[in-house]
């Protein structure tokens, strides 16, 4: 059983002009293996910073991250990342992108070829395996990124607005795909999004963060992700509980935004 423990994380950025930004303050959280958590919050509340610390790209100024009891000190293959866009290697074919992890680990092609093929089938890119990345649409590219992450068997998958750049329809299909992969692989997933609907649909747990300093504002446990596996997501959205939660969270974020605006106006 793997466990991701976030222990009193704080992150302060010192700016060149001498001032500093408190991007995160005292964030604590524990995720069990196989949990899917979505993270919401107004822009600038430290979501990306949190994810970068979890991945090991940033070292926190205080606190620590423990994965299976081991302290995270830098990026490694245990925590895979899916970026919003532009993180694929466009000089490699789709297949080479997906097999990047196993290849870097020095595995023989016979060890990973079958699985890479299988993953590309799952994400619906059967006929695009030899294509170049730039020949793919935005949605296809995100599916490659997902498959590339899965092919490396990370314990935790971190996603920073992975569907943000997609159109509504593609986005809905990708949401179903994420749910399906989550159920099938049993991975721990943390997904940042700006869409309240997406956060509700995909988050077994939902974290709402507040800005200045970035902190956890509220946490929910939701039934919609389980209900959404293999189901029509639009049916899930008709659930009255879903509608009620959506309104609640929307007004919560609105209040935060208004508070920020008020504060900046007062400061001027």
């Amino acid at each position: 059983m793997s466990e991701l423990k976030i222990d009193n994380l704080s992150m302060r950025f010192d700016l060149p002009n001498g001032s500093s930004v408190q991007a995160l303050k005292d964030v604590s959280l524990t995720l069990q293996s196989g949990e899917l958590m979505s993270v919401l919050g107004p822009s600038g509340c430290g979501k990306t910073t949190l994810l970068n610390i979890l991945a090991g790209f940033l070292a926190p100024t205080e606190g620590q991250v423990l994965l299976n009891g081991q302290k995270v000190t830098g990026p490694d293959a245990h925590r895979g990342m899916v970026f919003q866009q532009g993180a694929l290697f466009e000089w490699m074919s789709v297949r080479d992108n997906v097999s990047f992890g196993p290849r870097m680990a020095g595995k023989a092609p016979s060890d990973y070829a079958e699985e890479v093929d299988h993953l590309l089938d799952i994400v619906g890119l059967k006929d695009f395996k030899e294509k170049a990345i730039y020949e793919l649409s935005g949605g296809m590219q995100q599916r490659v990124a997902l498959a590339r992450c899965l092919a490396n068997h990370p314990d935790v998958i971190l996603m920073d607005e992975p569907l943000g750049a997609l159109d509504a329809l593609t986005r809905e299909k990708m949401q179903s795909l994420v749910l399906k992969l989550w159920k099938e692989t049993g991975k721990t997933i943390i997904l940042i999004t700006h869409s309240v609907e997406e956060a509700l649909l995909l988050g077994e747990r939902l974290l709402v963060m507040a800005p200045r300093p970035g902190r956890i504002h509220k946490e929910y446990r939701l039934p919609f992700a389980d209900a959404g596996v293999g189901a029509d997501l639009r049916e899930v959205k008709k659930n009255p509980e879903y509608t009620q939660k959506r309104e609640e969270i929307l007004s919560m974020i609105w209040d935060m935004e208004e508070e920020i605006m008020g504060r900046t106006e007062a400061a001027q």
Partner: peptide, 29 residues
């Protein structure tokens, strides 16, 4: 080179040299 490409390579388990060889050099071509 986009920092997200380097990050992605790191979290896919690539070493510094592998990143130089497979990410930074092709990206600079």
């Amino acid at each position: 080179v986009r920092i997200s490409k380097v990050y992605a390579a790191y979290s896919l388990g690539a070493s510094k040299w592998q990143i130089l060889r497979h990410v930074i050099i092709p990206n600079s071509l």
